[in-house]
Nucleic acid binder design. Structure first.
Length: 278
DNA sequence: AAGATTGTTGCTTA
DNA sequence: TTAAGCAACAATCT
């Protein structure tokens, strides 16, 4: 989401929105007429990110919220090229696809496609007050300065839930999902099943450090399932190569050469190394 | 063909 | 009252 936000900020700000072609009304979680009314003729002034939620700031203190959930994509196209963000998208140049739920059309003929195969994602207009309320429901931004060791210790203090569930709890820490939770705990050498409140000082510090390292690395690689243009051969990009434990069940651990295991925690697939993570 | 899949919400239970 | 646990949401792929 951080990558998508940064990429889109370069191209869609201060462009007049001529119309929004909504192909799937279910994707819009506001009163439909209001949604169109707020957007038409408006402009995006900024893009903010709250955890995995994107907030496109509009004129008159309103925001377009976009959540991509599992399979959402945002693809911006102008005359020259398409840039894209989101999960496993097909050829950016083939838009609209059968999964295109809405198209934002700008005055200069450029377009923003909201695609979503599984239809979990949504678009929503909120005012300033509402946005503040939504933001409040999220925990600290882990890449911010405000998130320091002291803050983290306080966050996990007394928690009986396992550490993986705590890392993924958006109301505690914003933005860590299933993949990065596994990566963080592998980096820190901690078993995902450990009750968060019973980790030692040293372990807490290791996890804190790992959060910073993993997120920094992920952003450096432009996110996990982000792929940009098709290359000259028409092949899809793949940027999951920097992952060290997620999706590697049955393979050799990069640290100890033992076998990476997979279990279920809270209904989610969880990859870990039983030898390296205690 | 059953079980898996990157996220969140809202209900039930403790 | 709050925290934890879990099904549900939908559509694909293996």
């Amino acid at each position: 989401m951080e990558t998508i936000k940064n990429d889109l900020k370069k191209v869609i700000l201060d462009k007049k929105i001529i119309l929004v072609d909504v192909k799937d009304k279910k994707a819009v979680k506001s009163v439909f007429a209001d949604f169109l009314k707020v957007l038409s003729g408006n402009e995006f002034e900024d893009i903010l990110r709250v955890g995995k939620l994107l907030a496109f700031k509009l004129k008159r203190n309103e925001y377009l919220l976009i959540h991509l959930k599992m399979t959402g994509q945002l693809i911006f196209c102008d005359k020259k090229k398409c840039i894209a963000g989101g999960h496993n998208f097909p050829a950016a140049e083939n838009n609209p696809t059968k999964f295109t739920r809405a198209v934002f059309k700008f005055a200069n003929k450029s377009e923003l496609y909201f695609n979503d195969m599984r239809r979990f994602g949504y678009l929503k207009i909120v005012d300033d007050d509402n946005f503040k309320k939504i933001k409040k429901a999220y925990g600290v931004e882990p890449i911010s300065k405000e998130f320091d060791l002291k803050n983290f210790k306080k966050t996990i203090q007394g928690k009986k839930k396992n550490i993986k569930a705590v890392l993924m709890d958006q109301s505690l820490i914003a933005g860590i999902g299933n993949i990065y939770a596994d990566e963080v705990l592998f980096e820190a050498g901690i078993m995902p099943t450990r009750p968060a409140g019973r980790l030692s000082e040293k372990e807490q510090k290791e996890i804190f450090k790992a959060i910073k390292i993993i997120l920094k690395r992920a952003i450096k690689h432009r996110g996990t399932t982000f792929s940009d243009y098709l290359d000259a051969k028409g092949e899809k990009g793949n940027f999951t190569r920097f992952l060290r434990v997620y999706g590697r069940a049955g393979k050799k651990c990069y640290k100890c050469r033992g076998i990476v295991k997979k279990i279920k925690i809270g209904g989610r697939g969880t990859s870990f190394c039983p030898k390296c993570q205690k």
